[in-house]
Amino acid sequence: MQGIDLKTALTELIRRSSTSFGKEWEAAIRSASENEEQGTGARVALETILENIVLARESSAPLCQDTGFLNFFVDYPSGGKESVYTEAITKAVIEATEKQYLRPNAVDILTGKNSGNNTGVNAPIISFHQWDNDYIRIRFLQKGGGCENCSSQYKIPDTALGAGRDLNGVRKVVIDTAFKAQGQGCAPGVLGVAIGGDRASGMKLAKEQLFRKPGERSNDTALAELEQKLLKDINGLGIGPMGFGGKTTALEVFASTLHRHPATYYVSVAYACWAYRNGIMTIKGDEVTYA
């Protein structure tokens, strides 16, 4: 990648993600909108959302003013240096903030001071992974604070919900997350679910599910069935877009698993608003592609 200005390529990744909403998700929202009754609050909300998607894309303005937690997942060939990526990502984030693709969202816990440029302790959030491929993949996820507040983690059995250590128990706690969120996480939401692992690895995997596309079912038959059942159940709650009531409370549920410790059984649910944004950049030789 000698011929590539990594910072500039990353700034473009951020611009695309923040302002140009994924076409597949736009189509999913369009069909949800057509499914709601004419003139209802739910329908008006989804129509407004669609109008906003088009405007943001055309004007390169952030789709949502909460440009989120900035998560970068970097996969790079063995032997590479992490510092190359950390420096370029940090510079790109600062530039993207100056260009108003991002809102300054990094606040110091002890002083309460906003750093003003999205950098700080663990900001942006970068995860590194060395792999055996000869190319670089950087996945970028912008997850809003309002919907992050709706994410949750359960340890089952859960007496109050009557949830045991099986997929039906998992189903119950995931529905609980959607129910508790009501309209507060900007429904219709997308729920990334990870079953098992420890608390940290579970939540991270739950978040990574948010890179999946609408209709992309798990390869595992039991998980795929669970995803479909959950989507139907959650939409049966009737919470609707923005919590106005209606048929669309979730756009997708994506499930995944990790082996667990015999004593534990965690279910991690990453609740994403309809407007969670992401993008993937691949660098092969001197060629950069965005997806």
Partner: peptide, 13 residues
């Protein structure tokens, strides 16, 4: 009064 969450670009207008 409820506005539409996520409709940032549109509301800014």
């Amino acid at each position: 009064l409820h506005a539409i969450g996520g409709a940032g670009a549109l509301t800014a207008k």
